[in-house]
Design a protein around this nucleic acid. Sequence first.
DNA 1: CGGCGCAGTTACCAATTGGGTACCGTGCAG
DNA 2: CTGCACGGTACCCAATTGGTAACTGCGCCG
Lengths: 120, 120
Amino acid sequence: MQRVEALRADMFEEICPSTLLPFRIGGDKWAALVLRCLEDGPRRFSELRVPLARVSPKVLTQSLRTLERDGFVLRTQYDEPVRRVTYELTGLGRSLLEPMRLMCAWAEDHWDELLDARES
Amino acid sequence: MQRVEALRADMFEEICPSTLLPFRIGGDKWAALVLRCLEDGPRRFSELRVPLARVSPKVLTQSLRTLERDGFVLRTQYDEPVRRVTYELTGLGRSLLEPMRLMCAWAEDHWDELLDARES
DNA sequence: CGGCGCAGTTACCAATTGGGTACCGTGCAG
DNA sequence: CTGCACGGTACCCAATTGGTAACTGCGCCG
């Protein structure tokens, strides 16, 4: 009944030793990962916690609040008896995905050079 | 006799309320500006201080050292009797300029939306 | 009634970042 | 001999970031 696939717990297992990358997207450390989680549509808080298990609820909330404040994410609270909240990309947020992909492309292209530089 | 134009003191006067931008390039706050100063060729420490007058020498040194460590900038010390040091972009550093320009383009395109979001 | 899932919040703590001010040694120019 | 430009260091401090652990209130399930 779900419109899109669930997020996988290992979504960020292998990628992104992100300290190597000379880019940062969004205000804080986890913003880029959150944005990627929202690519396919709205997600609930607890859905986001699955791939971002390494991030404590407090920190995830912080990240989401900042993203909301800056207009990249829309938070919606449903007043069904049982509490439900979703987060989704705004137009502005979605427009960030393309630059993000370009940066990932850059990083892939220059991966070896980055590693070389760090070793010495 | 200088190969390229001097850097202007007002180079960064008007632009970049950079806290608005959802991007960060390089490890620290000033890295992006330093890279832009080196676009046209090697520069001496004191040349860099002109447009970056707001940045104390200590902080500028930090920034340059990080950029050097990460392989984006090459530091060269000349053993002429009078002390001379230059900084220039490496190939890797130069390759960062293009993504930087893309991000600036993105920022210009979405400037209004960014402002709107921040106001509310 | 007990406990669980949801969507957080609160209190507290440690590390990192960012920055100011002052100072240093060398080599010239006057 | 004095002083200045150069390319930084040394020392200290404040703010921000990132993080843990514990707790909250609500509704539901059994």
